[in-house]
């Protein structure tokens, strides 16, 4: 749970950075719609998925998820949120003319871990 809150702080903090770039009219940000879109996606997904991590931790306590599953779910969900957020950020920071860069390829992997984590919390008794 501590790591999830840390993740939340990281991605919420990135929002301050994005705001600052708007305020400073930073080159490579205001004039790059693809980068803007993917950094926003990273900020929003990272923050929301960190909250999902906290919700999963709470749900596992309430549902008394077995320890063997719970330990791995915590790791998978945390890594999933991190991969989605970082994948969007990385894909936006380093990208081609019309597509995000290669780091975006870890976004589906992160999403799969998160989906599997949610399904596991719901189904495993």
């Amino acid at each position: 749970m501590r790591a999830s809150v840390g993740l939340l702080a990281l991605f919420l903090g990135s929002g301050l950075w994005l705001e600052a770039m708007i305020g400073l009219r930073a080159g490579g940000w205001v004039d790059d719609p693809l980068r803007r879109e993917f950094l926003r996606l990273g900020h929003a997904h990272g923050g929301l998925l960190a909250l999902v991590n906290l919700a999963l931790a709470w749900a596992m306590t309430k549902l008394q998820t077995p320890d063997g599953w719970a330990r791995r779910i915590r790791v998978a969900a945390w890594l999933g949120a991190l991969a989605v957020g970082v994948g969007f950020f990385g894909g936006g920071l380093w990208h081609g003319a019309a597509d995000p860069g290669p780091l975006v390829l870890i976004v589906p992997a992160g999403a799969m871990m998160l989906v599997a984590s949610c399904v596991a919390v719901a189904m495993v008794r």
């Binding site: 063997g68 599953w69 791995r72 779910i73 790791v75 998978a76 999933g80 991969a83 589906p108 992997a109 992160g110 799969m112 871990m113 599997a116 984590s117 596991a120 495993v124």
Partner: peptide, 11 residues
């Protein structure tokens, strides 16, 4: 089994 379910698709 949990490792396979949680990490298998991503890997």
């Amino acid at each position: 089994w949990p490792t396979l379910v949680l990490f298998g698709p991503a890997v």
